[in-house]
Computed example of a mutant assay.
Amino acid sequence: MKKYIVLITLAISLISCKNNTKSNSKLNVVTTTTMITDLVKNIGGDVIEVKGLMGSGVDPHLYKASEGDVTKLTNADVIFYNGLHLEGKLVEVFEKMKSKKTVAIADALDKSTLIGSEYFASNYDPHIWFNIDYWMQAGAYVAKTLEEATPEHAETFRKNWESYHAQLVTLKQEISGIIETLPQEKRILVTAHDAFNYFGKSFHFEVVGLQGLSTATEAGVQDVQKLAAFIIENKVNAIFVESSVPKRTIEALQAAVKSKNHDVAIGGTLYSDALGNAGTVEGTYIGMYKYNVNTIVGALKASPNLSKGEE
């Protein structure tokens, strides 16, 4: 890890010497995750240039900066990142870039309201985008940062943010209505890793992840067996794959349940640490959230699977 950071730091220094002028008049913004990229683009519009480091299906917990990423980071006017060690392998890179405007969107939030975790580097659950109210606070922070960076476009940023904020308010209302159709006793969400705790807290779901908050540590046999027993005891209808986590973890869990003479369905693939493909509905934050909720509610509302002994 230290060797990796040294190489990245050296690259930053070399590129900085060669690139000290902007390629165009637009504010050059670099973002890390697809969720942050989508947020910044909605607020910045056409008056800024946004370059996202991570694409669809990319796991930010494990992501390492490439040489091309270093060039983007070095030439950026503003860099937006999560700020709660979500991008674990990039944190030290950001810390080395003292001359750059690095903005952690989590700084917009009251840390005392976050979900704590002694098992994660920041001591907080970093998956803040699944709390829509937090995402609104992050959006306001992004808008303010862009206004300060380019005051001549302040009015554009304010109008864009007002429009997008209204869409987020509508999103929360719509998904709340969908979730209300799911009985409380069926609100148990089992996924590959603990990315959905803020979602669960917001909409009264019990959330259980096989791998914990980070995907850096794989689940062991005991973890799988323990969760399989939980699924059977609580008569959970479906468990869910995540787009940025290998499917084999949930398939192993399903097999463990079946080995105990019970069945559980794989209810679908959820978008957790990354949005869907660019150009699709799921490639936007709002589209991703709606898709996830419809997938979760649809699968958990299905008739419960009978154990093999009851068939």
Rank of each mutant, 00 (worst) to 15 (best):
K51W: 02
V169A: 12
A154I: 05
T37F: 01
K72N: 14
E282V: 09
V93M: 02
V30Y: 00
I296L: 10
E155Y: 00
W161N: 12
A302L: 03
D273W: 06
A65I: 10
L275W: 01
A302W: 02
V29F: 10
F157Q: 06
Y134G: 13
K111H: 13
S66Q: 09
Y4Q: 05
L53Q: 08
H127W: 09
R187Q: 01
Q225N: 15
I231F: 10
I179F: 03
A140W: 06
L146S: 10
V58S: 07
E148T: 13
T284P: 06
M1F: 06
N237A: 12
K258I: 07
K111L: 05
S176A: 15
Y4S: 11
N75A: 09
A108H: 09
G52S: 11
D69W: 02
I239G: 07
K89T: 08
S272T: 14
N123P: 02
H165T: 06
E218S: 14
D263L: 14
S122Y: 12
A104G: 12
V169Q: 13
S163L: 10
Q167D: 15
G139T: 10
K2R: 14
S244C: 00
R158Q: 15
A106E: 01
Y198C: 13
L114R: 01
W135T: 13
F80P: 01
G200C: 05
N82Y: 04
A219T: 12
T32C: 11
G209F: 08
E148M: 07
W135D: 08
A106I: 03
E206A: 03
Y164F: 15
A302I: 08
D133V: 13
V293G: 06
G139Y: 05
K172I: 00
N28E: 08
L90V: 11
K258Y: 09
S303I: 05
G267W: 09
K186E: 13
K235P: 04
I132F: 06
G57F: 05
S56T: 04
K72Y: 12
S214G: 08
Y119G: 02
S259C: 00
E174V: 06
L114D: 01
S244K: 04
A252V: 02
G45E: 05
K172L: 00
S66T: 15
E233M: 11
A106H: 06
V293Q: 04
E67Y: 04
I266C: 09
H153M: 08
G298T: 13
F199G: 05
K2L: 13
G57I: 10
E282Y: 04
V6W: 03
E206D: 12
I179H: 02
T33V: 11
Y119V: 14
V221F: 03
M1S: 14
W161S: 05
Y141Q: 02
Y124H: 14
Q167F: 06
L171I: 03
I175Q: 03
M97A: 07
I105R: 03
F196H: 00
I15L: 15
V50C: 12
V29W: 03
A192S: 15
T280I: 10
L114S: 12
P304W: 08
L109W: 02
N19F: 09
G57P: 08
G276I: 05
G88D: 13
A143Y: 02
N305G: 08
